[in-house]
Design a binder for these strands. Structure first.
Lengths: 181, 181, 181, 181
DNA sequence: CATGAATGAGCGTTCATTCAT
DNA sequence: TATGAATGAACGCTCATTCAT
């Protein structure tokens, strides 16, 4: 699964061949089929597993009672932890969500993630602290900014430091929050 | 080329077959090879053409003398115009920049776009109006947010209106600008 | 189709590979797929075509008004003509009728052949000239005897002569007719 | 071996996989290889065993001194007993005799069966009681008729009764005997 | 002794590319 | 110039066989 994740993230589903995965994993091509019915099943299992981990990462110990800003920090921190823990998983999710070969369960799992984020955004909007834009758009802005930025880190173009991450968080928050000035 | 752009954007390079392109374009498969040496050449020509158009869109009539905010509006407006003009081209650029099959010329063309944006960001940072973050990161934030958001529009999940676009612009600007409060 | 017929007859469906068919037919493996969706479609088309030809061979110019013996001669003659015309087709039908990969249309086509033979046997039984055995059994006896015998001819173990064929016909007829002694 | 016989008879050698046999036999796939060097050895051992049993069935207590008709009854009875005893064995022999993967010993074993039948036919022809046709042809007629008929019984299309079997015997005998009328 | 995970050759099939028409 | 039939390398996948447990 590590090999598949790496390759799917780097080359995409169609650009990754089963022999490639087998070679990277240092197993025979047939072995993969003892564990996954097909390449399509593999990508779905992988996707669900990644998204589930991602959900866990952003929702575990979620400070329900805290203020929006602290909740945003929690979510952002979860995203960072997830992205750092497995640098390919985030990109894999990003590039494969919405793909034509995802099965209903994968779509549903992804929807759970979206639902979680929607709930956060909705609550922020209700409190008048997050801009009154469509939730999808707000999520897209933060998620888009964050993933593209981590792609740069993965590619080694910029170096990830606590300061940088904290500033990026500030930047993303400024993108969605209501400004009083 | 329209057919190829559409398919590459929707299914990716590896998920698009030459016969698919030929069918969509309502020409024979062989005809494509009269105009493009190979599928790889086609995707490169297409990429360069799209990126060049994109550069044109954001840089044409660029207000060199205006202030940063106005310049940002110009760039953002160019991006919107480009995305609206050919709804698939932006997504095609987004998903194919950095692909392994891009040739040096494609990479260089894309770099020209990056250079243009870098110059803008650099100037903004020098004036103390844009955050002192790595330029790549700042571009990624705006670009990432913008493209993800337009993906939603393309998918029909949110409806594009002048108000929405203006608010998104504000949001993106707030993500990169220095806040005085 | 000739190559496929030959190989299916000699090695069976599962024992015949598509590359084998392509090599025998002196075409590329991919070419086969321009004409047949799959190996399974190929075997079905082939089966239907053979059975249809077989039906034509035994039913064309059928002497509806003649006596049973003459009708038997006509059918037997049709079988001989068919078997001689394409020595593999009969064996192909014989070994593939009832196979798990035959589609409904193939089964129906084969049933048409059976129906034709049933009608003949039924009429003979009604006239008291053919034994009062299940029609299926009577057909099996003649068909079984005939095909096994032609397998020998195909294998070169016995030589086909008009006299031999006439004697085999007599033998088959004696197997199904009512004997007055 | 029962599992293998069943599957080879129903799906043919090439259509039967070793895991299929293992599953049907409720053993591990590897276990089969403790008893048979290869799938090919298995089919040969099975073939030889079946043919040997068949020979036993038709030749045990053979009435050497009796007349041809009684000998025919004996052989036919042996065939019936064999076919009833193991409903798949006869079909397995029928469909696998002459197969490309049979080894010399299998071919020789089958030849012993043929020799036994040849001897019977030869003796009958010498006595002027069996038609002066090639022995192979005569055997093919009886064997072909018999096996095709038993295939129907196996498939449940006709029901086997002593009367039916006796009539089939008569029919087969009429196919090979010399008729005085 | 029995197992079943692992293997990789070879299956059925696809598709980028060529070329006669 | 435009075509699409033909190609064969390489795909996703299966399965006869091996071998550590």
């Amino acid at each position: 699964m590590d090999a598949a994740l790496l390759l799917f993230a780097e080359r995409g589903y169609d650009g990754t061949t089963v022999p490639m995965i087998a070679d990277t994993a240092e197993v025979g091509a047939g072995t993969i089929y003892r564990y996954f019915e097909s390449k399509e099943v593999l990508v779905n299992v992988l996707f669900q597993e990644c998204v589930t981990r991602f959900i866990g990462s952003v929702s575990r110990n979620y400070p329900h009672a805290a203020n929006i800003r602290a909740q945003f920090t929690h979510i952002f921190g979860g995203m960072v932890r997830f992205a750092k823990d497995d640098i390919h998983a985030l990109h894999f999710i990003e590039t494969h969500s919405g793909a034509r070969y995802l099965d209903p369960k994968s779509r549903e799992t992804f929807q759970q993630l979206m639902d979680f984020l929607h709930a956060f955004v909705h609550s922020g909007k209700e409190q008048g602290l997050i801009r009154p834009l469509p939730s999808d758009a707000l999520i897209a802005i933060v998620f888009g900014a964050f993933t593209k930025m981590f792609t740069l880190i993965r590619a080694g173009k910029i170096t990830e430091t606590p300061e940088l991450l904290s500033q990026i968080e500030e930047s993303c928050w400024d993108a969605v929050r209501v400004h009083s000035d």
